[in-house]
Amino acid sequence: MSGAVYRVRLHGRGGQGIKTAGRVLGTALFLEGFEVQDAPRYGAERRGAPIFAFVRAARGPILERGAIQRPDLVLVADDTVVVVPAAGVLAGVTSRTVMVLCSEQPEDVWRARLAPKGPLHVLPLPLEDRGATSLRHVGMACAGAAARLLGVVSLASLRKAIETELAGVGRAAIDSSLAAAERSFVALSEHAGAAAPGEPIAASGYERPVFVELLCEPVLEATAMVHGARTSELVKTGLWRTVRPEVHAELCHKCHWICASSCPDGAISASESGVARVDYDHCKGCGVCVVACPHHAIAAVPERSTEVPK
């Protein structure tokens, strides 16, 4: 039988080092003598799309499998994924879940937005990522924070885990990762051990699933096919965006076919006045239009979360 299990979930986007952060934390815990499970989970989505990783650690064998139902610790490397329902940042979060967000917004703003029942900490964006177009060190900052909040990982083990997991990426990248992780490890010193292993899901008094008997349904309904066109537009891929293209109407020469024909997602059209208009529901923020515009009328502006999930 298994003993107390630490359950940690890390959220971010493809390309932000979330998978690596999970592995760093897993290795650090392993170095401390824990049994460990770590895994990334991502669907068919691509670079920029939300992903998560999870880590379990225990002193005895871990019998749980797959995604974490009730996390003890949730770390969000990119605050823009909070509003993405599919990202599931708040899934299974309870009053005893410790939450950490990497954000430029202060803690009280996030408290107001999320109204968390449990502890919440905000980490500043790593120095290494400030002003950069893509966040590359936020995952590592979260790994450092997680190590400290669990309270059972030494700085030495954290360092060794980073050296191990990043071996082969080059000294400069390792050093900047070490710096980002250590900074958040130190920043959360006073909360060391705040994230404690949660209780397993009890076999008595549980909420009983309501199973149904599936019936054989009409073939047109029961076949994996779509009847119609362009239903994909219901998917708001604008939520992937970390950089927003902004059209400056005064600079726009109304040659929208240039920027529109360069947009892989078809997210640019002409407004009535002829000025290019970006469909922010779907623009993934690739920035191709910014480069394509011969008049430099489209600017790339970093995107930061301003909305609260319903």
């Binding site: 669907g43 691509r46 994909s232 537009e233 998917v235 891929t237 040659c255 892989p264 993934k284």
Partner: peptide, 25 residues
Amino acid sequence: HLKDIPSAHLLGAGTAMCAGCGGLL
């Protein structure tokens, strides 16, 4: 000319292709 190419957006947005996909373009 470039502006002769239709822009009826027959291919809807909202797909799972990577941002900046040359194939999708």
